[in-house]
Amino acid sequence: NLETVDCYNPKVVQATMGSITRVNVSYLNLTDFLKTTHMPIFGAFMEGDNIYKSQLPNKGILVLGNEANGISREIEQVITTKISIPRFGQLQSTESLNVATAAAILLSEFRRSER
């Protein structure tokens, strides 16, 4: 896919802290894959449902967009549930989180719901 970075890009390899060697990497057309899956597809959006108040399944797919542009319109059309990490504090002015930080928070909440 020309819209993403290669998983063996030096910055990607460095960011994984060596974990890239422990996962299977597959290249596929994401839109086609998401259209054929039977699992729920969760997308991280600023206007999504509060993750802390959501009923989360044991299995599903989590889609996060890049920090500058978010999730593409094409992928957004196949997402079954929009979720978000709520803003806290009086100002409510935070625009977005770093995608790695957001992924950690969201995945932690999915894992916590398994208990």
Rank of each mutant, 00 (worst) to 15 (best):
N24E: 15
N24D: 14
N24K: 10
N24F: 09
N24W: 04
N24C: 01
V25N: 02
V25R: 02
S26T: 07
S26G: 02
S26L: 06
S26V: 14
Y27C: 11
Y27F: 07
Y27Q: 13
L28W: 10
L28S: 13
L28I: 14
N29T: 12
N29S: 13
N29E: 14
L30F: 05
L30Y: 03
L30G: 15
L30K: 00
T31Q: 09
T31I: 13
T31F: 13
T31W: 05
T31H: 15
D32M: 06
F33L: 13
F33W: 14
L34G: 09
L34H: 00
L34S: 03
L34N: 09
K35D: 05
K35I: 07
K35R: 13
T36N: 13
T37I: 05
M39K: 09
P40M: 07
F42G: 00
F42K: 00
F42E: 03
G43Y: 00
G43P: 01
G43R: 01
A44R: 00
A44Q: 00
A44T: 04
A44E: 03
A44H: 04
A44I: 01
F45I: 02
F45R: 02
M46D: 15
M46S: 14
E47G: 02
E47Y: 05
E47C: 08
E47D: 15
D49L: 10
N50M: 05
N50T: 08
I51R: 04
K53V: 04
K53I: 06
K53D: 10
K53M: 12
Q55L: 07
Q55E: 12
P57M: 13
N58Q: 04
N58D: 11
N58L: 02
K59M: 07
K59W: 02
K59A: 11
G60H: 08
I61P: 03
L62Q: 04
L62R: 01
L62A: 11
L62P: 00
L64E: 10
L64C: 10
L64V: 08
L64R: 14
L64Y: 06
L64N: 11
G65Y: 06
N66R: 11
A68Y: 01
A68H: 10
A68F: 03
A68W: 04
N69W: 05
N69I: 03
N69S: 14
G70A: 11
I71T: 14
I71D: 11
S72I: 02
S72H: 08
R73D: 11
R73I: 08
E74Q: 14
E74I: 13
E74T: 12
I75P: 04
E76A: 15
Q77K: 15
Q77E: 15
Q77C: 15
V78M: 05
I79M: 06
I79C: 01
T80H: 10
T80I: 12
T81C: 05
T81P: 00
T81L: 04
K82E: 03
K82Q: 09
K82M: 01
K82W: 06
I83K: 01
I83M: 04
I83G: 02
S84Q: 11
I85F: 05
I85A: 12
